[in-house]
Each structure stands twice: as C-alpha cells, then as structure tokens.
Write a protein that binds this DNA or RNA. Structure first.
Lengths: 341, 341
DNA sequence: GAATTTCTGATTTACGTACCTCAGAACTCG
DNA sequence: CGAGTTCTGAGGTACGTAAATCAGAAATTC
C-alpha cells in the first residue's frame, strides 16, 4: 500500500517526530539524520497525502473574488461561475467570497482590494483596471503574503502571480485574419466597433486587428473605430448609420459588448448582401445570430474556465505546489456555425 | 466556523451515530428522527468534508487507462498526460494505471478490458474501437459497477458514462466551412485526406466535411478521399502525386495524422500558389507549418484536457457526485497563425 | 405480559498528517 | 569534567468523518 510517515520512520530507523521535522522543514535534525530520512522517503516513494495534511492543519482556503458590477452577459456569467465554484468549494475546505465594485471605478477597486486584504485571505482574484493606483493596491496584497490573480483583464507590471484571461492582442489578430480571409476578393471597407477605447481589452483587440489588416490585407480600407459604450441601443444606432453611410460595407469586427444592437441593425439591414461579421463573446444573442447566419464567427473566452483556473492557481500558490501550465492557459475559443456547443 | 457532524448531532439532539446513519443512508433511524437530523443539516448548512470522509473511509480511487500503442504525436501526448496525471494523483489518494494495447486490435482491446475488470478498479478509461465485441466488454465492466469512460474515440450504444473527446462530425464541418470560405472564389478542386476510412474518427470528420461542402459550397469539386494510413511517407507521396495530377488543386483537408509528409510535399510543391490547407492535431510539425504560412488552420483536441476530464468524470462517478458539465465538454480548438499557444 | 425484534444512543477506533510536550541522549564549549 | 546546548525519541492530541460495538429503549409479536 501507499507508504505513510510511519513507514518512513520505521525504514529510516528514526521516530515519527523526526520524520515530521524533515518533512515540514523544521529545525532540530542533524544533517546525517536528515539524509537518512530523505533516503527513506526516496526509497519508499512517499508522497504526502494533501487531504490528510490539510485536515490536520485545519486549513481552510479563503479566497476573495472582486468583480465589477457590470450587467452585460459576460459579467453575469462570470458571477454565476464564481457562485457555482463557491458552492462546490464548501465541501473541499474552501471559502469563496464574492465582492462587487462599481465598474470602471479605480478608487472603488483600490478600496475593495485594501478591504479584502484586511481579512487576510489566502488569495484574491479581481478584474483589473490598468492603473498605477490599482497596481499599488495589488502589490500591497502581495506584500502581505496574499496570492493575487487577475481575471479577464490584466494589470501590467504588478506582482500578481497569474492572469486568468485571454491574450487580447492575439484575439484581435485572429479576428482580423478570419475577417480578411472570409472577405476574400469582396470589395468594400471594414468597420471596427468597440465598447470604449479606454478599456484595455478592447484597445488591445483593435490593436491586434489593425496590425493584421495592415500586414496581410493592406488593400482593405478600415473605417474609424466606433465606440458603442457596450450598450446595445447605442451600438445598434451606430451600425445602422454606418450601413447607410457605406452601402458597400464589407465587414464588421465588434471587439466589445452590446452585440444585441449590432444584430438588430443587421436584421433590419435590408436587401443587399450583409457584411461579414466577427464578434466577441458567445451569448444567447450571438449564438442565435450565428446559427441563423446573421454573423460569421464568434471569439469567446470561457468564463467558467477562467474562474476555475483562477481558483486552481490561488490554491496552488497557497500550497506552494505546482500548477499544470497548459491547463491554465485560457484559450481563445473560435465558434463558427458548425462547432457551436 | 463550518459546522461538523458533531454540531448536527448537538443541534438535532441525537447522537453522532444517528447523524452518521442519516448521512450515509444506513438503516435504523425512525422517520421522525431522520427528519430532525435533516432539519439540523439544513439549518446549519452542513456539507460533508470530502477529504475527511475519504480519509476515514480509507478510499483510494483506482482507475485504469487503456491506450493503443500508437506512436503518432497525439497518442504520445496522450500517454504523457496520463503519466503526468498519475504522478499528481498520488498525493490525492488516486492510483492511475496505464495499459498499452496493440492499435486497431479488437481482440486485444477486449482482453485488456476484461483483464482490467479483474482487479475491480473504480473506473476504466479507454480509446474505443467501435465494435460489438468491445461494446460487450465495456458493458461487462459497467455490470460489475465499474465506471467506464471512452477517450478520444467513442463507443456507440454502450453504457459508458461519458465520452471524453470531440464531436468529429462538427470538427469536419468546421474544417469544411473554414476551407470553403478561405478559398472564396478561387477555382480548383479540393482534396480530402484521411488515415483510414476504417477509423471512425476520420470517417466522421470526412462526413461532416462532405456535408458542409455539399450544403454551402456545392460548386466546388471534391476529389476522392486518399488514405495515407496516418503514415508521413505514404501521405507525402499521395499529396505529391495529387499536386502533379491537379495543378489547379485549391484546397486540402487532412482529417488524419501523418501531416509531416503533407507538409514536406507542400514545401516541395514548387512555384504556383499553394492550396489552402486545413489539418488536424497541433504537433510540432503542424505548429511550425502554421507559423511559416505553409498551412492555414489546425483543428485540435487537447489531450491534456481529455485526460483530466476523464479522471474528473470517473472520480465523480465513484463518489456519485455531480460534474460541471461545461467543463467536461471537449472543445474543438481552432488555431490560426495568430492564436498559436 | 413476556419474548422478540427493531431502533437509538454512547463510546471507541481508525484514517494520515501536523504539532505539541517532555525526557533523555548526544554533542559543544569552556 | 561539568554545564550548557542541540538533537532525537516517545507519546500524545487534534482535524472531520466512517464505522464498529454494545447496551438500553421502544415497538412488535405471540
């Protein structure tokens, strides 16, 4: 059977207490004795039973998730996933607390981070706003020995251990390639849409999109970016105007939210051949639009995967154990009509 | 703090033994008493600590993985992932045994399944061959109360609890859409390649591919399927011949393995515009080819995800607990040059 | 109403590790 | 060589749950 600490003690000819000292790096063991114990561990292939260890330690993992109080589909999904993970976590000695902060509010986020640190949790995950004050607040947590993970949106130059989110530049590039290639020789300009250029995700996506268009589809005209504030109504209005102003509009890349408005405008779009459309985030609306051939592709980040990944990383960090790197790389999911889940 | 069985006993005014009987569905509790205990569980929000429970039970999860002794990149990756999972599993009271069987050998697979059952493990995962004998062997395991999961390749009509693999028809359809749209108006026929049409995965992919081409790109000529036996040399030869025979060849869809040969043939392909190429499985070779613009897209199934998913499902099944359905859906990863990991 | 059966409570041990105390052995230093 | 320090062994308790035993209470049967 699987060897236990008792077996190690017997094999090394020392007592349980000494084995324990070696295993947990405590002082009071002569080098020669330490080596004997380590040899026994090696020989028997002992591995510590983490469940028993955590039980003995009385350890309860405590993590805080700080999420913006946005009401778009993606943030709703994210909150639901945190909720579900909290539920499951209870049976595994994990306490997950979710805190809402006003969206795009730097001061509120900083306050929430400092506040979270006061309870001395094992880890904190949060959707970052890329600002120096936030970076400083995150680093204060790290200073206290609290593991910090950014979620969905990263915080450059900070001491967070991990970013559970997609590479938005790569996502923009992917969207550019898909759109450019789907267009083929079809003439006409392309319209980029964003929620706001103040948001780092959207900016990065458009940056990637722009560079691919310049590199590989240089002949294609790119219209100025329109900002729909992630609002369906506003986005719909902007798209409707663009369709009127550019009857030959060949493609649309929507890097932000508010896609319900875009889809409505496309439906109302009328008689001609509709533009090729690539959007972000698989929601009820974008899923239906894809199934009905109203749009051509959806790039998606899996909220569930991001939340579970953040938790795994925080847990590994508190245990000082390793993660499976490949598992924690958040993929850019590409959905066409044919591979909808 | 988190309530324990002791708290339940105190709150319900019964003994620990009675709480235990209720919790574990044992007999010997009057309905009225049972309700009192259940009310206390509800009131205190008690959830069982699985780690402590498994420790007390002395439970060790024992799973057997049966994999074909194929030496292509994908199977090698799969074996490596099982190996890595076995290593990690040791610290979590899990024993993972990996068994090799000759590839495409129904009798050997049946023997391996029966053999695995003899040790009475908690679960078995295997790469299925879709044959009645295999189905019967799998059902025999289920009959013994062993959880059965198919990996990569499914077993229709069997009593396996889960299939950890991708939907190959959807993958083929996705490949078809990508290829058809990337081709745009470019004239010329398309060549489908497979390892063997006897293999269910490849057959399904080509089926999906064919139906999309017929539905959405009906004008495009499809050449007869070539079978390269998943062998780089043979595949290379076939592609080279096809390139000579069809100088206007516009596209290639490779549903099987042996893509190193395909890539070599493309490199040697010479002067003209190369065909649009979509292949399966992200390996060193296909990754490089994508980065160097020798091919246009790679559809991939993540071996690591499949193995971890199979383990999670087997574990949940032995615990009779629930899985996170979304987490166990294996995605069809689409890689372009722009979103390579 | 006695005998039997079924239920219930109290108590104990076990799982594998962590961590504590205490006593005694083995060293080190002056 | 004695005093001090550093190591080591022995033994225990604890974590939260499972599961066993045994005795007593309640219900059922004759």
């Amino acid at each position: 059977m699987k060897p236990t600490v008792h077996d190690i003690a017997a094999h090394a000819g020392v007592s349980l207490a000494t084995v324990d000292r070696v295993l947990n790096g405590r002082a009071g063991v002569r080098p020669a004795t330490r080596e004997k114990v380590e040899a026994a561990i090696e020989a028997l292939g002992f591995v510590r039973d983490v469940a028993a260890a955590n039980l003995a330690k009385g350890r309860v993992y405590s993590f805080v998730f700080i999420l913006p109080a946005n009401d778009n589909s993606f943030m709703q999904a994210l909150r639901a996933e945190v909720q579900a993970a909290a539920e499951r976590g209870r049976r595994e000695r994990m306490s997950l607390v979710m805190r809402d902060v006003p969206a795009f509010d730097i001061a509120a986020l900083v306050a929430a981070l400092d506040d979270a640190g006061r309870d001395r949790p094992d880890g904190v995950a949060f959707v970052a706003i890329d600002a120096p004050e936030v970076r400083a607040a995150a680093d204060r947590l790290v200073e206290q020995g609290i593991a910090v993970v950014t979620l969905v949106s990263d915080l450059s130059g900070s001491r967070r251990v991990h970013f559970a989110g997609i590479d938005n530049i790569a996502a923009g590039r992917t969207a550019g390639t898909l759109l450019g290639r789907f267009l083929g020789g079809r003439p006409g300009p392309v319209l980029p849409l964003a929620g706001s250029l103040m948001v780092r995700d959207h900016r990065e996506r458009l940056e990637g999109f722009g560079s691919v268009m310049a590199e590989r589809f240089a002949a294609r005209a790119i219209l100025p970016v329109l900002e729909g504030r992630d609002d369906p109504v506003e986005t719909g209005r902007l798209v409707q105007e663009a369709l009127l102003a550019h009857p030959d509009l060949a493609g649309i890349y929507s890097a932000g939210a508010g896609n319900r408005g875009l889809i409505r405008a496309l439906q109302a779009g009328g008689s001609g051949v509709r533009p090729v459309v690539i959007v972000h985030e698989l929601t009820g609306a974008t899923r239906d639009a894809l199934a009905q051939d109203l749009i051509d592709g959806v790039l998606n980040q899996d909220a569930g995967h991001e939340v579970r990944s953040a938790i795994r990383v925080l847990k590994a960090e508190t245990d000082r154990s390793a993660v499976v790197a490949a598992q924690e790389r958040i993929r850019i999911d590409i959905f066409l009509k044919d591979n909808l889940p």
